[in-house]
């Protein structure tokens, strides 16, 4: 059994330690908001937080997480920056198909956690690992700036 702290809840899962967190979340725990996109940490769709830091869950062995707190898209509204990002995403209608947006929101929230007022270069550096095939980047940029300004 592996014990995980996910969105504030303790969950025990009977899975191999080398199983990536992505599949534990999706297939074992039914937390399907975290998405599979590439499986090789190239697209960012699977981004979650470990102690507030963004990680690609598709390559993260679940046995290495230990005590660190996992936050997924299902729990991000409970964090102040997560809620701000979600609101800005809706206010500016960032989303199209939405499949990558869980990962985008997780990366954007993590950016605000460390850089409260990001400029374009900060945004590029923090968000370049998240692919959006619908091409919502222009609005992602605006929405991060709006969220940073909001209280």
């Amino acid at each position: 059994m592996i014990n995980l702290r996910i969105n504030g809840d303790m969950r025990a899962v009977d899975v191999p330690g080398d199983m990536p967190l992505l599949w534990v979340l999706r297939d074992i725990l039914g937390l399907t908001g975290t998405k599979f996109g590439c499986g090789i940490a190239q697209c960012g769709a699977c981004t979650v937080h470990l102690d507030g830091i963004p990680v690609r869950s598709c390559l993260l062995p679940v046995g290495t997480i230990g005590e660190r707190a996992i936050t997924t898209i299902e729990g991000i509204a409970e964090t102040p920056n997560g809620a701000k990002i979600q609101k800005a995403w809706l206010d500016l209608e960032v989303i199209q198909c939405g499949y990558c947006q869980s990962g985008q929101i997780m990366s954007a929230t993590a950016l605000l956690n460390v850089t409260p007022n990001p400029d374009d270069a900060d945004i590029d550096a923090a968000m370049a690992g998240n692919i959006c095939r619908c091409g919502t980047y222009v609005r992602i940029r605006e929405a991060i700036k709006q969220a940073a300004k909001s209280v």
Partner: peptide, 16 residues
């Protein structure tokens, strides 16, 4: 879009 910011939306791949 509201359910696309919180992980609630169900795509084909999320069917369980």
């Amino acid at each position: 879009t509201p359910d696309k910011v919180n992980g609630k939306v169900i795509y084909g791949i999320d069917a369980m």
